[in-house]
Each structure stands twice: as C-alpha cells, then as structure tokens.
Design a protein around this nucleic acid. Structure first.
Length: 266
DNA sequence: ATGCCTTATTTCATAAGA
C-alpha cells in the first residue's frame, strides 16, 4: 500500500497537479492538507472519477484536511472526537484533523498550526494542539495496532531537516518545545518512516515560493509520515517527490509517500 | 538540472503561510 501526505495549498488551484500526481504515482491513500475548502465545495466527483473515496474536514478559507483512498474508508472521524478540541480565541474549531481506516490501517491526516513566532499566541496554540493530537491518538488507537499519522507537522524534527540551522535557531518549527511535543507523540509508539530509510540532510518537503528557494535548496522537512511498530517492519520504500514541486503552479510542499506491505493486515 | 511568492477573500488591500 502506497500512503502519501501532501499539503496541496488550495485544492481548487492544485487539482490539475493533483490529478497528474495521482496518475503517475498511483497512491492508495493520500492525506491532504490545506484544501482551503468547505466540505460542500469539495470536488468529490473528481476523486471518484480517479477511483478514490474521500473524507474531508474543511470549513472554508483556511486549513482543511482530507483523506483520499482507493482501499476503502471506514469509521471516519472529523476533528477531535475523543478529547476536547483545543479552542483558540473562542473560535470555531479549525479543520486540522481527519481520521479513517483505510485498508486495515488507521490513518490520520493532520495539519499542525503554524505557530508563527515564539511569542505569538499561535505558538502556545500549536503546542496545545500537539498535546491534543497525542491524547486523541492515545484514546482512539493502541500502539500495537497498524497506525499511520501523517501530515504537515510544521516542525523540523532535527537540525539536518533545516537548510540553515543558524537561521532557524530558537525559531518556530525548530524550538525545543515543538520538538518535545513531537517527541511525545512519537513516544506513544510512532516512528518517522522516512528516516528509517534515509539519514541524509537536505531532504526537504517544503520550500518557500520566494527568492528561488526551491532551486537553491533552501527548504525544510516538515511533512512527516509517522507509523506504528506494526507498520515499521513493513516499510518497503519511501520518497519525497520533488518532481511535484517543479513546473507550473506547484504547491510549496512536495508529496511524501511510504510503501508498506499490508499483507495479512486486512 | 529549475526558474526567482501564492492563495482566498470581507478584492485594487489584507492576512496567512513557515
């Protein structure tokens, strides 16, 4: 089973690139983030035409997460179901989490809040959100089950996941508290699947649109596929597909996918 | 080894992204 995560940065704008990518990458499950759509506006028929079912959690202009699957979508849950969602400024809950069982694997598509700066209220919100995610996973799954939590974490796990650690020292996406919150999620029983196959730096999943950052190798690895132990032993291949970051109207994120042998899981 | 910000909306300006 090929499972991917991709921050598409507007599904409307990206649909041609998404259809291109589905066609040549042939993913079985794709977790998308930043669809920037309300549920009613989601182009379900376009995905059906490609052979995918979709569950989407979106309420409009910002955020929005989805799971597209051609191996089934069972028991979908939109947002935080098992624990109170982390409210921010009294607003409606933001659309940053959706989960479903696909091909015998419990899959979550997550879009972790950006945090903005270390002194911005959104930074504390980001930390609260990560704690809520950890609690949600713990309340809905067991570590010995096949679990995949993937998405845009807005955290670079290590300095080698950052093009210039000096620039990002004590900054959002790299701070000790953020990495600690990610480590707490991993400590439940999840492993960064990409890092089981690749040790090198400069393997980024996001590059700023500005200043030719992509072409000059200035990026961050912030899109992660976290997998439980039952999945780690089944990893066959993984890749960050930089091709999808090139060309006409790309997202600023590249898709990341992991191939796992699901024989016997379903 | 590719092309020098992009997106949506409360649109000709602003907020957000990471």
């Amino acid at each position: 089973m090929r499972i991917a995560t991709w921050n598409v940065n507007s599904l409307n704008v990206r649909m041609p690139r998404i259809e291109e990518w589905f066609d040549y990458a042939q993913p079985d499950v794709v977790c998308m983030q930043e669809t920037k759509l309300a549920d009613a506006a989601f182009p379900y028929m376009s995905f059906e035409a490609m052979g995918y079912e979709v569950v989407h959690n979106g309420n409009g202009r910002w955020n929005g997460v989805a799971i597209a699957s051609r191996v089934g979508i069972d028991s979908p849950v939109l947002g935080f179901g098992a624990v109170d969602h982390p409210m921010f400024e009294g607003d409606e809950p933001e659309s940053r989490l959706v989960a479903a069982t696909c091909g015998g694997v419990r899959v979550s598509s997550v879009y972790v809040p950006n945090g903005r700066t270390l002194t911005d209220p959104h930074y504390e919100y980001k930390l609260r959100w990560l704690t809520a995610l950890k609690n949600e996973i713990g309340a809905t799954s067991k570590p010995d089950e096949p679990v995949v939590v993937c998405g845009d974490f807005n955290i670079a796990p290590e300095d080698k996941d950052v093009y210039d650690p000096r620039f990002f020292k004590n900054a959002t996406h790299t701070s000790a508290k953020e990495r600690g919150a990610l480590d707490a999620i991993k400590a439940w029983g999840l492993t960064d699947a990409f890092r089981t196959l690749y040790d090198d730096g400069r393997l980024y999943s996001w590059w700023d649109y500005r200043a030719g950052d992509f072409h000059q190798g200035r990026g961050l690895r912030i899109d992660l596929v976290l997998v439980s132990e039952a999945i780690v032993s089944r990893i066959e291949y993984a890749l960050i597909d930089r091709f999808a970051r090139k060309g006409k109207q790309p997202s600023d994120h590249a898709p990341v996918f992991v191939d796992i042998d699901t024989g016997g899981l379903t």
